[in-house]
């Protein structure tokens, strides 16, 4: 419970780590936003966008950031707020001021290339979903009747994983997930660059979100049919073996997805799979 009766400040001090474009130097800028009840970080950024002037009165460009649903289901507005990665829509100003009454500190995610200010390029996160084949490979979209029956227990087990909104919190907090920022070379076409990017991403850690998605589709009765392909992907370079069990993923996940359970299940599947493969070859 928060009380904002007497202690409500007149202004909120906001410190934003800004960066004009990729590869450029970042710098801090301080803003002062009039306090309103029920503010969240998004509304603070909206006020800054409407009147981009720093605390010391300088007119600057508005802060760029990413958001969409503002209900914590789309995963767009992830950023590092007061040192902790989270969705900025559900980061309430009153709560943040309890953590630190002096100011609110906003930084872009640390594991993804900054595009501008608080906007980052999270394409690697989606590439990981391609790598683990996170889909049900149905034959067609024709009318073939209902899907296989599933027990409510199985649905309850899968449902949490299916809520993953690819926000990237788990990746940003993971000490084993390292930032990769590639620069397009002059002699490289867009396609060549995209291919190089994909190859580099594939070699590095897929991340807890993708491991959980692989488990989700391996639990699905139809998805199960190519479970081996997903386990194969999870034991390829950058697979589940990179996990260092710091378990930050599960503690920062805004949807409380049991990511460490997925990782352990992936570990078990990998164990069985690799032993089987070794004896079968």
């Amino acid at each position: 419970m928060i009380s904002r009766s007497k202690t409500s400040p007149e202004h909120v001090e906001v410190r934003v780590l800004r960066q004009a474009a990729p590869q450029q130097r970042s710098y801090w800028e301080r803003f002062r936003v009039a306090y309103e009840p029920d503010m969240n970080v998004i509304s603070v950024l909206q006020r800054i966008a409407a009147r981009p002037r720093t605390a010391d009165g300088q007119d600057v460009t508005p802060v760029a950031w990413d958001c969409n649903c503002l209900e914590e289901v789309c995963g767009a507005c992830t950023m590092v707020v007061n040192g902790r990665v989270r969705q900025s829509c559900s980061a309430l100003v009153d709560r943040l001021l309890e953590e630190n009454p002096a100011e609110i500190e906003l930084r872009p995610m640390t594991k993804f290339p900054v595009l501008r200010d608080l906007m980052v390029d999270r394409s690697r996160l989606f590439r990981a979903l391609e790598k683990v084949k996170a889909w049900v490979p149905v034959d067609s979209y024709h009318d073939m009747g209902a899907g296989p029956r599933q027990s409510p227990e199985a649905q309850q087990e899968s449902y949490p994983y299916s809520q993953c909104m690819s926000c990237g919190c788990c990746l940003d907090a993971c000490p084993q997930y390292r930032k990769i920022e590639l620069i397009q070379r002059d002699d490289e076409t867009d396609e060549q660059f995209a291919a190089r990017q994909a190859a580099t991403y594939d070699r590095n850690f897929v991340g807890p979100h993708a491991i959980a998605q692989a488990i989700l589709f391996n639990q699905n009765p139809t998805g199960q049919m190519n479970a081996d392909e997903r386990v194969e992907a999870l034991t390829a370079p950058g697979g589940v073996q990179v996990c260092g069990n710091a378990q930050n993923c599960v503690s920062v996940c805004p949807k409380e997805i049991p990511l460490t359970t997925a990782i352990a299940q992936a570990g078990r599947a990998a164990t069985v799979h690799s032993i089987k493969r070794w004896f079968d070859r």
Partner: peptide, 12 residues
Amino acid sequence: TMGITWGAWTSP
């Protein structure tokens, strides 16, 4: 951690 890595204990 080995128990997680190899999949001996999975649930929280």
